[in-house]
Design a protein around this nucleic acid. Structure first.
Lengths: 223, 223
DNA sequence: AAAGATTCATACTGGTCGGTATGTTGATGG
DNA sequence: CCATCAACATACCGACCAGTATGAATCTTT
């Protein structure tokens, strides 16, 4: 009778991924100790090297299977919203409010990994770039929809604004690590919210104008 | 007569600091190899430990004597300028234009160190926080002066704007590491420049309204 | 139930790194 | 010219860590 299977390879693998993610979040990838991961997960080295070919492969899997969904879930509301500015402002407020002291101290795993690994490992760089591209493309698309609906000013370049927004968030979270309090992050986020508000179209604008007219202002870069 | 002294302790120390800075920039602090620093500097381990008590102490010295002046020099123009927005825009353009491929790939040493070391070493954290505080305070002061002179909108909070600006710069430089090209950084910087432009006061505004400054629009304050 | 593959456990290896112990050389003051 | 100390040089140590070799236990298939 095995009500509980003695072997659960999928669960072992998932536990490994989660513990590796936490250890990488605390220490970074290179300083992440396999022994520490094994101890916190209760898994042995033999099991780890059965599921992952190397520490690097484990890191790649963490990026793809933990970091990527984590970023996507956080920004899904903006991509799905009718008014992307309202949604973005809400996400920013949520981001500062619910952020634990632990998260303030150790920052954003995504940003941490880019800073640490992108210059020295192509595998990390490509995967992290792909996540960044998707994130940015999502914001760009949301802004284009917002411009078509007349809720976002038509004279802003979505590509630039998206890069700027992401930069300010990751920069703010990263720099906040040098402070004990969350004052810096909150302050930076207030600046971002002000900026987001400045992106709103004038309430009197005609939505159809921005959507249908292609030649009004030649600021649309790529179409 | 010794035209060239065989022993130059000050020069040895300085060489060590510079080589350590470069190695830390490439590899981060923890992965920075003392052996690599010794090889690139042509100094032996005995000399290093004569000048610095430990690798950590060497790292602290790099922060104080290389990183801090480097940040201060980059932003000095903004603090000294009559119109801080003009100066900030100029610095941003300069920052993207002159940035070498090496700097794109390895990012900003200041941001790198905060991300890597602040959560795990109080000595680094305090020193880096101090640099960030000074940087931010400089921008705040420049903006206050700009508000007093009527070149900066009076309804923006300088503390928030300064944190936001610094965050977007460091975030942009950091995220650009995940890309091969400098497109992301340039795009983010265009977003920042747009934001900076939005901070300009309406040209018709009365400077005296923002603060009790008697001089209306004199550009000769700092000779 | 036997065979074979999957999943996990343990002990060990080679290499790197920060740090130290100890010796040597050059500068300096009397 | 000697004494003394600062400035450097060399050899070595213990700790840690990623990775491997080998074997045991468990599951699946036939």
């Amino acid at each position: 009778m095995k009500t509980a299977a003695r072997r659960q390879p999928d669960r072992t693998r998932q536990t490994l991924l989660e513990c590796a993610f936490e250890e990488m979040h605390r220490s970074g990838f290179r300083a992440a100790s396999l022994d520490a991961i094994l101890e916190s997960s209760g898994v042995t080295k033999g099991a780890l090297y059965h599921h992952f070919g190397s520490k690097t492969q484990l890191g790649y899997a963490v990026v793809e299977e933990v970091v990527r969904p984590w970023i996507e879930a956080a920004w899904r509301p903006v991509l799905d919203a009718d008014n992307c500015i309202d949604a973005a402002v809400a996400v920013c407020r949520e981001l500062t409010r619910t952020r634990s002291a632990h998260a303030i101290e150790y920052g954003c795993p995504f940003n941490n990994l880019i800073n640490e690994m992108s210059p020295i490992d192509e595998g990390f760089r490509k995967r992290l770039q792909s996540i960044l591209d998707e994130w940015r493309a999502g914001i760009v698309e949301a802004m284009r929809r917002g411009q078509a609906r007349g809720v976002v000013r038509a004279d802003v370049a979505p590509e630039d604004a998206a890069a700027f927004i992401i930069s300010s968030i990751e920069g703010g979270v990263g720099l906040a690590k040098s402070k004990r309090s969350r004052e810096f992050l909150e302050s930076s986020m207030r600046g971002l919210v002000d900026y987001l508000e400045s992106l709103r179209a004038r309430s009197g604008a005609h939505p159809a104008q921005a959507a249908a007219v292609p030649a009004a202002s030649s600021k649309t870069s790529k179409g």
